[in-house]
Simulated scan of single mutants.
Amino acid sequence: MASGRVLGFVFAVFMLNLCCSSVTSLYFHLAEGEQKCFMEEIPCGTVVKGDYWTQLYDDEEDEFLAATEDLSVYVAVRAPKDELVLSQQNGSKGQFSFTSSGSGEHWICLQPNSSERPLSAGRMLAVHLNIRVGERTNNYTEINIQNRLTELQLRVRQLSEQVQQIQSELNYDKIRKEHFSTVSHNTNMWIFWWPVVRSIYVVLFIMCLTGSW
């Protein structure tokens, strides 16, 4: 009975960590010409959606202003091998979406576009950004309307997609552990053999100097 409670608690904590890691809310400032990037570790075949809205921040007056209509933001996403996955330009409020073709670190970068109207001196762009990963990208209200599901059917579908997301995360975690194990093994081998190689080099160097070669 106690072990069942422990397993239930562990599963609940795991689900909580998964949900927390699947949604990222950020707030930051961008100056004219500045680019800021954020890294997300994403399993292969995972859908990522982001939405943002901006304000103008006047540093001298210490106040927020509404973003002008001609202000735009450039969004770029790069895969682990520096492959450009997404490149688009939106207005002061926008959305973006992509599906990862491989597992690993994906970089999401935002930059104010200065080609139309540069930011005035003393002003910065205040950005509110939300990033949703995997199952969290689903809008179950729309799914329910489109498919006319009962409450039980909708819940079963949601749980099924959460399980798939967990399995994807576990598979990716296994890949990361295998990679870490390989790197750790190679490092340990280098630590082990380096003194031997250095000793041989010193002996050969001394033999060359003394003419004992």
Rank of each mutant, 00 (worst) to 15 (best):
L149I: 01
L16D: 10
Q164V: 10
E83W: 12
L152M: 09
G91D: 02
F38H: 08
P112Q: 12
V196W: 00
C37E: 11
E69R: 06
I175Q: 14
E83V: 10
D70I: 02
S87T: 10
Q89R: 15
Y52L: 00
Q95H: 15
R123H: 13
I191R: 11
S103C: 10
Q164R: 11
Q111N: 08
C20T: 15
P43V: 01
E116P: 03
L18M: 15
A79N: 09
G8Q: 05
T137E: 07
G50R: 01
R136N: 06
T187C: 11
A121F: 11
P80V: 02
P112T: 05
T24F: 01
R132D: 04
L125G: 08
V85Y: 02
K174S: 13
Q162S: 06
N130Y: 06
C19R: 13
G122R: 06
S97P: 00
S100D: 03
E161M: 08
S101G: 15
G33T: 11
L26G: 01
R123S: 14
N130R: 13
T182A: 07
L18K: 07
N186G: 07
R176T: 10
L7A: 12
I108K: 01
Q164L: 13
N17S: 14
W107A: 00
N113C: 14
S114Y: 01
V73F: 04
F205V: 05
L30E: 13
G122D: 05
I145R: 09
T54W: 03
C44K: 12
Q165T: 07
K177C: 07
G134W: 00
V23Q: 04
V13M: 12
G4V: 04
I166M: 15
M124V: 14
S120L: 12
E63D: 00
F192T: 15
Q158H: 01
L26T: 03
G102H: 13
Y172R: 07
L7Q: 06
R155Q: 13
I206M: 13
S97R: 11
S97K: 13
F38C: 05
N17A: 13
Y172C: 12
E142G: 00
D82H: 10
F180C: 15
M15F: 04
S87I: 06
M15C: 14
N188D: 13
R5C: 14
E69G: 03
V48H: 03
H179R: 05
M207W: 00
G94D: 09
G45W: 04
V13F: 12
P195V: 06
I206Y: 09
A79I: 08
I108V: 10
R123N: 05
N139I: 02
E61C: 10
L110W: 00
I131P: 00
Y140W: 08
N138L: 06
Q55W: 08
E32W: 08
E142V: 11
K81S: 08
E151G: 09
S160D: 07
Q95K: 15
Y201E: 07
D173W: 04
V47G: 07
W53R: 02
L71G: 00
K49S: 07
T68Y: 08
G94E: 09
S3E: 14
S120F: 11
K49Q: 09
C44R: 13
N90I: 06
S103Q: 09
E63M: 09
V13I: 12
R78C: 01
L7G: 01
A2N: 12
K36Q: 10
H106W: 00
W53T: 01
N113I: 05
